[in-house]
Nucleic acid binder design. Structure first.
Lengths: 366, 366
DNA sequence: CGATGGATTGAAAGCGCATTCATCGTACGC
DNA sequence: GCGTACGATGAATGCGCTTTCAATCCATCG
């Protein structure tokens, strides 16, 4: 009745369970004839090795995990509404994809779990118990929990600043937010001669957003321009908010800047549509730039100048780090910063899309 | 050295391992004082229950799986290229998201595995051994393998026609491709008075594409128009191919149709850009419609009329089916067809976006 | 005051497979 | 021909946890 086990197969094939196991784990160590008999029996019985038993016996699961924050939207098939959290979703989707692929290459499967902030609890512990190692999107899991778990299991932190104090032994991957925004802003200032730029940022607790803003500041510093102390607007990273942010800027009465740099593409896209509605010409009246490099940015009019971050690679690097730590538990914690590239399209005043200027910013520090 | 186990915790807390286990499985059956002691010990030791051991002992993993085809693109961060397989990726992403959420609601984690067609082999067996049940995107896994595995484990087939013969005991979820395309085409014919329509379809072995084409045919039949025998063009479901498909249609010399129905949105979007380039006005000179309801469709100009299919719900339904079968292994196999809705936007000639006409097509047949 | 029964806790038996060690052949070498 | 060595296979043990089943404990009841 229940699923067939090694014992059943062994019986049917007239061998011991050790041999059955060997047929799957080390086929070459079993004589061809015997092997065939076992495989045939397995086929006949519909035998599928139990991952649990195997994992228990060999004390490793061959599964890697990923914990990411749940996207807000509770259920709603979202009729035709504003894809509010599309950005976030897209982001984790890409990481999932990157991890899945890299994991498979290394012979691992991928277990994913979105942790809803208010969740029952210890969802991490749940995945932690089932995998050989896992990645966590920054700010998804409470520090204390991670602290405990990471003592027993490789964990890599994704996107977000490198952790300090209790978690500084974790491997870590992020993209060059600072360098990217610096390069982008430098381009706007140096190549387009825009000296008054506004910055629309995210909440202060978004490490990515803050790093980007610092890059924005640095470009001003470098150019000898007055350094803005804080983003002109802080808001959520959605299209709707981007739309509203420009509205605020324009209605604010203050002098119109020469360009607006948004902390991400979603906002920038929203802003473009609002600007279009108001008859503000981009880039003539106002240059616009985003950050992320989402596909949509190429399709809007004018095409969006932005900084592309390799989200999928983020996932791949995470897997690399996990695998390498699985091989050597004691190596020094490593922090990787992935390079980003400025994509010059029309929204900043560049002719017509399509010249990506790779901006070397790959750093490996220990 | 190695990770702490129940024994360690039990020792530290001065209780038996049975009690430790109970603290996690049935907290109420342990006196509060004892429970605290155990929890404290666990915390101190950094104890995380082994999913494998637990699964083995309780013979269930509390994990659900999903097998989907790998998206072509091997590595390439795809500089700024044509997101060729974006459609497919988007598709599986949505399903993953839907399943993840539903699974979590039911207390399951989700294991995902993209099977590369040429892969080493039996990737399914691999996931099958680790989960309590799983979903398979149509045409991802060889029939024989599924046949064997599905004898031992709940499997639901996603998107694609219902399987026959050896696999007809599987649960199955798909969307109303036929009904959706029928409704859409009916709209073009009846409401916009377009009598000559072209259809750009996919390869013949795409069950979805074929079903859509049959819906397209049915609308002609219903309207008393000549029924096209085959799609005017068959090609891959990408933007680039869509672009080329219209080019073919226009350059073909034949009389220009009043409208073109594409088997999916990606192609339609590509076509729109090509038409725009050629100065063909949409919808005045040529109406255009897609299928899928991808977000991008709302953003192109003119906004794309299409049929929205609830991809995320596909994943949710799959989980429902799996869970319910886990509860009752013997219930009749069920086939669910999810309703789709025609989204009328500008590309077909409808005023301006935003009226979704839900098209009842939900059917549950056994 | 002893009996009775529910609440707790412990002892022990697996769950299905990997793996070490011992055993059994058999091809070779002398 | 017989000892030797290596390849193939079997027996047995344990991975870490769940789950009866039985043993205790203690409060309540007669």
């Amino acid at each position: 009745m229940s699923a067939p086990t090694v014992y059943d197969v062994a019986g049917q094939a007239g061998v011991s369970i050790a041999t059955v196991s060997r047929v799957y784990r080390a086929p070459d160590s079993v004589r061809a004839g015997t092997r065939e008999r076992v495989l045939e029996a397995a086929r006949e019985l519909g035998y599928v090795p139990s991952g649990n038993a195997r994992g228990l016996a060999s004390r490793n699961t061959r599964v890697l995990g990923l914990c990411f924050p749940d996207y807000a939207d509770p259920d709603a098939e979202d009729p035709d509404g504003d894809y509010g959290d599309a950005e976030l979703m897209l982001y984790s989707d890409e990481i999932i994809r990157g991890m899945e692929r890299a994991a498979r290459r290394h012979g691992y499967a991928l277990l994913i779990a979105a942790s809803l902030s208010e969740g029952p609890k210890s969802l991490v512990a749940d995945v932690a118990g089932r995998v050989d190692g896992f990645a966590v999107l920054a700010r998804t899991v409470p520090t204390e929990e991670l602290e405990v778990i990471s003592r027993r299991l490789p964990v890599v932190m994704l996107a977000g600043p490198r952790e300090d104090a209790p978690l500084d032994h974790l491997d870590h991957v992020e993209v060059a937010n600072f360098d990217g925004e610096l390069a982008l802003t430098r381009h706007l200032i140096a190549d387009h001669g825009i000296t008054r730029l506004a910055f629309v940022g995210s909440a202060e607790d978004s490490p990515d957003g803050e790093a980007r803003f610092r890059g924005f500041q640095a470009a001003h510093l470098e150019a000898g321009l007055p350094v803005p102390e804080r983003p002109d607007v802080r808001t959520r990273l959605t299209q709707a908010e981007g739309r509203q942010a420009v509205a605020e800027l324009l209605d604010g009465g203050a002098e119109l800047p020469g360009g607006v740099v948004f902390a991400n593409d979603q906002m920038a896209v929203g802003a473009l549509s609002e600007l279009n509605r108001r008859g503000v010409r981009v880039p003539e009246d106002l240059a616009v730039a985003g950050f992320d490099g989402i596909p949509l940015g190429r399709l809007v009019t004018p095409a969006l100048t932005t900084v592309r971050q390799p989200m999928r690679r983020l996932g791949e690097e995470a897997v690399d780090l996990l695998v390498s730590r699985l091989e050597d538990r004691d190596r020094e914690p490593e922090s990787r910063v992935l390079p980003v590239s400025v994509i010059r399209r029309s929204s900043c005043g560049c002719a017509n899309g399509h010249d990506a200027v790779p901006d070397a910013a790959s750093v490996t520090q220990s």
